[in-house]
């Protein structure tokens, strides 16, 4: 299946459903090392994003992603709003005007999204943040030779990246206040990033 406006819309609808389904799980992960609102905030933001996508005709893949970005920036709050907003804004900027997206463009868009998230949040690998799921996922896309295989590999890499946050001591965000006590818990932001790629794999690559 191609990456284009309609499949990107389907991806966003799938991610919104995923955030609703996993809201409670993300709240529990965030309660352990943060302030317990990640699932609620992401769900509120994605429901708003889907409503705004339905409210107006979207010209292309880039327009879909920018609409999602603006919805998240204005409704999510917390750190996740600006960070996911930046991620979708960068994706949308690179993919602007494209009717159908090939693997090199898609990988380049995700590289820019990763750079944007790191510039805004100042997080590095192993800081126990969403970046720990994003880095391996983007690397998997860049290493792929086929778009669908690449998206599947990215989802698997994001999953492994999220799981690997469990033993880490947080160095960014609210979990960093806990110091050593943040170890032993999976990072909620890395987990929602995994669900973003899982939705992509289920939409684009089945």
């Amino acid at each position: 299946m191609a990456v284009d406006r309609d499949t990107t819309l389907a991806w966003m609808t799938s991610f919104a459903a995923s955030m609703e389904e996993h809201r409670e799980e993300l709240v529990q992960l965030d309660t352990a090392i943060g302030d317990g609102d990640h699932g609620t905030n992401m769900n509120r933001g994605m429901q708003k994003a889907v409503a705004q996508l339905a409210a107006a005709e979207q010209a292309d893949t880039g327009a879909v992603l920018k609409t999602v970005a603006m919805a998240l920036i204005s409704t999510v709050g917390g750190a996740a709003g600006p960070l996911y907003g930046t991620l979708f804004l960068q994706l949308g900027t690179v993919l602007a005007g494209l009717q159908e997206v090939d693997l090199p463009s898609y990988a380049a868009a995700w590289r820019r999204a990763l750079e944007g998230v790191q510039a805004r949040g100042k997080a590095q690998a192993q800081d126990k943040t969403m970046v720990d799921a994003l880095i391996p996922a983007v690397a998997a896309l860049e290493a792929a030779t086929d778009l669908e295989d690449g998206i599947r590999a990215a989802a698997e890499a994001a999953h492994q990246g999220a799981l690997a946050t469990t033993p880490l001591v947080a160095r960014k965000g609210r979990a960093s206040y806990l110091g050593e006590r943040s170890a032993g818990h999976q990072d909620p932001g890395a987990t929602s990033t995994y669900y973003l790629f899982k939705s992509a794999a289920e939409t684009f690559a089945h």
Binding site: N41, I73, G77, G78, G81
Partner: peptide
Amino acid sequence: PGEVFTSPTPD
């Protein structure tokens, strides 16, 4: 005012 314990948004 943001949501409970959640930062408000730029708008």
